[in-house]
Amino acid sequence: MTFAAFVLALVTMQRLGELVLARHNTKRLRAMGAIEVGADHYPLMISMHAAWLVSLWLLGADQEVDPWLLSGFVALQGLRWWVLSTLGPRWTTRIIILPGAPLVTDGPYRYISHPNYLVVAGEIALLPLALHLPLIALLFSALNAAVLAIRIRAESEALSGVSSQTA
């Protein structure tokens, strides 16, 4: 197994684990009366992320790994875990609104409205660059920006309703 394949295996396991956690949290939140908004774009987002990972496996598993760019990707994992730990059981890959629950305003949310999307944008660019795949980085960064434009608009509209209810 190449080092690149090892890195991709770790990233794949991380993403699958996050999907399991997200599904668990989503079920629990729905049982508490939470509602999902913006579900129409969810399959597009999941497809884009899956295609990104598949393209990395197909084109990058045998590549040399740039240690500096990989270090940047690893550093982003610390920010990812900060987001996950701040949201705790409210973290999910869907836009789930729990009526009556206040917005999260601590952790990285003190500084930026959508920190996880910033992390994901960095990851989508850095990992392909670490595998010497600049066109994959460019293509999926553009696709991610398009998906995030839809998602952030839906999430911001949903969350603005929450903040006006709790004010």
Rank of each mutant, 00 (worst) to 15 (best):
D40M: 09
H41R: 15
H41F: 04
H41E: 15
Y42V: 08
Y42M: 12
Y42W: 10
Y42N: 08
P43S: 12
P43E: 09
L44R: 13
M45P: 00
S47L: 11
H49F: 03
A50Q: 04
A50L: 13
A51Q: 06
A51M: 08
W52Y: 10
W52E: 02
W52T: 03
L53M: 14
V54G: 08
L56F: 04
L56W: 00
W57T: 03
L59C: 11
G60S: 03
D62R: 12
Q63V: 00
V65E: 05
P67S: 14
W68H: 10
W68D: 10
L69Q: 06
L70E: 09
G72Y: 04
G72W: 02
F73K: 02
V74R: 11
V74H: 07
L76K: 02
Q77I: 05
G78T: 03
G78N: 08
G78K: 06
G78L: 06
R80C: 05
W81T: 12
W82G: 06
W82H: 14
L84C: 02
T86V: 09
T86Y: 02
R90G: 03
W91N: 04
T92F: 00
T93A: 13
R94K: 15
I95R: 01
I95S: 01
I96E: 00
I97F: 05
I97D: 02
I97E: 05
I97C: 05
L98C: 06
L98S: 04
L98Q: 08
L98V: 12
P99G: 07
G100V: 05
G100R: 03
A101K: 00
A101G: 01
A101V: 01
L103A: 15
L103V: 09
T105W: 01
T105V: 14
T105D: 13
D106L: 04
P108I: 10
Y109P: 05
R110N: 11
R110T: 11
I112S: 10
I112Q: 12
H114W: 07
N116V: 12
